[in-house]
């Protein structure tokens, strides 16, 4: 049974993997298509990085910025991975 459920589990993921990959890719491409939006994202990315860099050393690649455009509203999502040791320092 376990190998069957393994296959099942793997299968379950393929469409959600597809969806996640598309969402990340399109967030970038949509920016590239329209000059206005692309400048906005680049500017946001730069300034947000500057602010964060004043306090923490964060890897550029560990920051994800994306805009989801919806019919009613759009969502700006900023995802920053903060190094582990820093969490401790902040707490003390």
């Amino acid at each position: 049974m376990s190998f069957l459920s393994n296959i099942f589990a793997r299968r379950q993921q393929s469409s959600s993997v597809a969806k996640d990959r598309l969402q990340i890719l399109l967030a970038h491409e949509r920016g590239a298509g329209e000059a206005g939006e692309s400048d906005l994202i680049r500017q946001l990315h730069k300034e947000i990085m500057e602010v964060i860099a004043r306090h923490v050393a964060v890897d550029q690649d560990k920051v994800q910025i994306k805009v989801d455009r919806g019919s009613g509203c759009s969502m700006l999502e900023i995802d920053v991975e903060v190094p582990q040791e820093l969490n401790g320092k902040r707490g003390s």
Partner: peptide, 18 residues
């Protein structure tokens, strides 16, 4: 296939393309 999650579902595509 969409029900078995092997294929993007209607909802997935609609959510992405809106």
């Amino acid at each position: 296939r969409a029900a078995r999650k092997e294929m993007l579902s209607v909802e997935d595509v609609l959510e992405i393309l809106s």
